[in-house]
Design a protein around this nucleic acid. Structure first.
Lengths: 136, 136
DNA sequence: GCTACAACCTGTAGTCACTACAGGTTCAAG
DNA sequence: CTTGAACCTGTAGTGACTACAGGTTGTAGC
């Protein structure tokens, strides 16, 4: 591992912020290609792997599922992807995020309203508990 | 199952909007008490079960985890819970929800910014893909 | 060359909150 | 007494990892 463009799994992990176990998991599910091995069986990664794993991590940070990332990588690997295809996937994903935000906001609102009823004292009759026993 | 305050799992399911499999799951993990059985082994639920399952469902709708609901039910079962305890749990939960919303909004913002760079045409060089290959 | 020990290896099981199935039994209506 | 819906149990699968056990390899210092 003395060349600068080749590294073990620990270094790849550090450079991408992706845990060792997770890297092996990505390999197992076919997201990261099987790297060559040393004589003893240790994985040896190249800069290509680093690039690809960075893509995956960044995609995860942006909330894409592994399946969406797989699709995205498939397009990139094909070489003939278009900007339109990628943008469509992204916009679809943005909609999902937006829906989640809306749902959570509604949740926050309901719960805030319920909690506001409650004085939080030592009383053993609580409006929050009452609310939970009632269906909408 | 002819009495109005006693019912099979199917009716309980309908009345709570909770799937049959889910009800059995809640029993398995000790959230819903084991109901008595008919001679043939069918579960027979009372209004107490209905009340408790409603509590659980409503809690889930409000985003509480099953563990949080277990704690809440523990307080209620103890009989000597105070409003303060319940409110504390609720506020803690509200904070988590708030954090999720904040995180998702940041995500939405980043992704929107990235997507705005992209014209979505037939080009095979896409700024979204470029962004994914770069770590923050 | 030898010794330590960190880093690596594989395989398996656990997480959360369900859902879905297979293969069998019971209940209630007609 | 027959039919068929509703019920039963147990198991496996979901997503995206994480954690462990028990073993092997790589490397730095002596």
């Amino acid at each position: 591992m003395n060349q600068e463009n080749s590294m073990g799994i620990g270094v790849l992990s550090e450079r991408t912020g992706c845990k060792v176990g997770t890297i092996r998991y990505y390999e197992q599910i076919g997201l990261l290609p099987d790297p060559p091995r040393s004589e003893g069986g240790h994985r040896i990664y190249s800069l290509e792997h680093l690039k690809r794993l960075t893509f995956i991590r960044r995609g995860r940070e942006l909330g894409f599922t592994l399946d969406e990332i797989r699709t995205l990588l498939g397009l990139v690997d094909g070489g003939s992807y278009t900007c339109g295809e990628v943008k469509a996937l992204t916009l679809e994903h943005l909609q999902e995020i937006h829906k989640k935000i809306t749902d959570l906001k509604r949740l926050e609102e309901s719960l805030t309203a319920i909690a506001a009823e409650c004085e939080g004292g030592a009383a053993s009759k609580c409006p929050i508990v009452d609310a939970l026993f009632k269906s909408r």
